[in-house]
Design a protein around this nucleic acid. Structure first.
Lengths: 223, 223
DNA sequence: CCTGTGACTAAGCGCTTGCTTAGTGTCGCG
DNA sequence: CGCGACACTAAGCAAGCGCTTAGTCACAGG
């Protein structure tokens, strides 16, 4: 809702760590260098989501990660590079989620429900990372913006493809495919802005509602 | 005028000025003090929308407004107060727009089309102010946040009321009124994030599409 | 003419910023 | 043991920050 207050995000959610950790399961404890890098990323994700990129100091990130201010620079060349790494990993995870959901669905209707519901749920569960991904984009340097834009175009493409497939099969009745895709993505993305944990709506209920609304929006009107 | 070098205020849209200027028409030229205050607000809106609140310096605002750094403080007590004034005026205009659109509509269907279409168009035309209103909220002090929240609750209420009226009249088929209102507001709000002038989509086409999508989303399914 | 008012500037204060430098402690390996 | 590699810290630098202070200037009222 418009009136939802953005509460300070609680530190070090398992969800954030989950979305940042490397692909394969850790064999034992993991190397200390890589572990520290992840701890810095989690700390930065917390701080950026709570205060925004520009209002976050490197000292704040360092102390949340249990390091001295200089310790961050052993693992990341600058605050901007740290933002880019968070943004890149966040986009990758979100894209993989969408691609898998679209691939596994039986028909365009179920595909649309799965991708919009899933994307909405992702922005709730990973609302810290989601905020960074969606709202701190402008603080990336030009070449990092370009790399992120490539990933965004992939995400847009998945949604547009599902809509086009539904129109082709006759399940959907959509005049403006790209405009409708834009509106659907907006509902999911905006979840990251208003969601905060511990409120009435859960990621699961958001997934259900938003998946259903997406299907309602595009279905052929039998009347 | 790319070649215009000496203009202190860069983009300074008429749209921004329009949304910030005082209610009544100016009798003659307007007092110089009030005029300067508006010039500062326009400069700050430009800068906040472009770089974000924290990345904007008071020196940047001052130079865009053609003043020395100290000149800003004659009219505004602090950078935060300036943000609040922009946020407050932006919310007021948006609220007035919604209330008027809902009041003037013939039935709930047309009311919904008017408020969601109009709100979307507003976020395109005033995308600078829209970004500040929607995305810089957290940089307000606690009591200023509270004042803005009151306005947001009014805006939420207008949408929920229209949906409830449509359900009552039988025009709409909506299971979760507040959840659907949330999703509809999200599409409109998110326009401020992605819109930029000079692209293919115009504020008018956005108004038409998003108004129509809103109606599609809630209409009774005759099948 | 003098005086008061108020918009505005030049200069700068105290502090914080992102990041660097020089050095410390601990480790694996020969 | 010695040695290099490397994660990490203490201290600090240059630059920039929000905002203040002391004063200038144009002008209205008398």
């Amino acid at each position: 809702m418009l009136s939802t207050v953005t509460t300070p995000t609680s530190p070090a959610d398992a969800a954030v760590l989950d979305a940042l950790a490397p692909e394969g399961g850790r064999p034992d404890g993991g190397s200390d260098a890589a572990e520290t890098a992840v701890r810095i990323m989690v700390a930065a994700a917390d701080a950026f989501a709570e205060r925004g990129f520009s209002a976050t100091t490197t000292r704040d990130i360092a102390s949340r990660a249990g390091l001295s201010p200089a310790g961050v620079y052993v693992h990341f060349a600058s605050k901007e590079v740290l933002l880019f790494e968070l943004s890149r990993r966040g986009h990758l995870r979100a894209r993989d989620l969408l691609v898998a959901a679209a691939r596994d669905a039986a028909d365009p209707t179920e595909a649309l429900r799965a991708i919009i519901g899933g994307f909405s749920r992702w922005h709730a569960e990973h609302h810290q990372l989601g905020r960074i991904v969606q709202f701190e984009f402008r603080h990336l340097g030009p070449e990092h913006q370009e790399q992120v834009l490539d990933l965004r175009r992939e995400i847009d493409g998945v949604v547009a493809d599902v809509l086009a497939a539904g129109v082709a099969s006759g399940e959907f009745d959509v005049e403006d495919v790209r405009g409708t895709a834009l509106a659907l993505l907006s509902t999911a993305i905006d979840v990251a802005r208003w969601y905060s944990p511990g409120q009435r709506r859960t990621p699961e209920s958001i997934e259900r509602l938003y998946g259903e609304l997406a299907v309602r929006l595009v279905r052929r009107h039998a009347g």
